[in-house]
């Protein structure tokens, strides 16, 4: 299979946040790419979209959504998908991603990434919807593993088996959020390396790194600080398992520092990539 489903390796990027618009446009920092939260730009006009146009003229853009609600039992929101396609075409986004989750039901939206029941029935349901979205995109959808805090008693699959099944059934790509693997492993008590053993690495298009809050017996994916050492170690392990590489992105949302601080944290990934490469050789 073609590495990364034929999608480019964009190097190291940062999640685009409005507080950094001015710095990016004025200083033009050297950086591989930006990932946008698609939902913030699903308008037909406006200041955020105009600024995005200017940034997209200078940097590769990837779209990362939070409201596709691919696991919901509500009908797929085709208008939302059409708006994704329009935005993708407008900013020449290299790919479109969202989460293995659902965000609402019965027409109501929590705007949170809620855990899907990990069963065969759920897998069939989500696979059908992924295929429908991919038909609309004319390209693979890239699915991210979310941080989860709850699991259903009736679950019959691990999350990694579920994702492997989803990739096999649909041809979708994977956005491996290393921090989310760590957070979920702490919350549910699994070994992150078992997770890594189970996913199809040839489908990993992109990796996410981020900080989280550690509350002792559980963690919350808060994106409010630097990446912790344990997540960097997992990242190095992931990088070793990903021989063709992947685009790597740092997310930082809350308590957002100045752009150079975020960029410096993202660039730390390079050192861990080198460490991983050394271990492989």
């Amino acid at each position: 299979m073609t590495p990364r489903l034929g999608l480019p390796d964009l190097g190291i990027g940062i999640g685009l946040r409005s507080a950094h618009y001015a710095h990016i446009l004025e200083r033009r920092p050297a950086l591989g790419w930006f990932e946008i939260v698609s939902d913030n730009y699903l308008e037909d006009a406006g200041r955020p979209l105009e600024l995005l146009d200017r940034i997209a003229a200078r940097y590769p853009i990837v779209m990362h959504g939070v409201s596709l609600s691919i696991g919901s039992t509500d009908p797929l929101d085709h208008d939302y998908v059409r708006r994704l396609v329009r935005l993708r075409d407008r900013v020449n986004a290299r790919w479109v991603s969202d989460h293995l989750c659902w965000t609402g039901v019965a027409g109501r939206n929590t705007h949170d990434l809620l855990p899907v029941p990990l069963t065969r029935a759920s897998l069939r349901h989500i696979a059908d919807r992924v295929c429908a979205v991919q038909d609309a995109l004319g390209a693979p959808l890239v699915i991210e593993n979310p941080s989860t805090y709850a699991a259903f008693r009736g679950d019959t699959l691990s999350e990694w088996d579920f994702l492997a099944g989803l990739c096999a059934a649909t041809g979708c790509g994977l956005l491996l959020d290393v921090n989310n693997v760590y957070v979920s492993s702490r919350n549910h008590g699994f070994d992150p390396r078992a997770y890594f053993d189970g996913i199809p690495w040839d489908r990993v298009v992109q990796m996410h790194l981020a900080g989280h809050s550690d509350n002792g017996d559980h963690c919350v994916d808060t994106h409010d600080g630097p990446v912790i050492d344990a997540v960097w170690q997992l990242f190095a392990d992931a990088w070793r398992r990903c021989p063709d590489g992947a685009s790597v992105l740092l997310e930082w949302d809350a308590r957002l520092p100045a752009f150079p601080v975020v960029a410096a944290e993202a660039r730390r990934a390079r050192r861990h990539m080198r460490t991983a490469a050394g271990a492989v050789s």
Partner: peptide, 20 residues
Amino acid sequence: APATERPLQAAQAWLYAAIT
């Protein structure tokens, strides 16, 4: 009737209500 043996929709409606 564990959540995932119920229809998927019922499981989601339950969790939505539990959160909101």
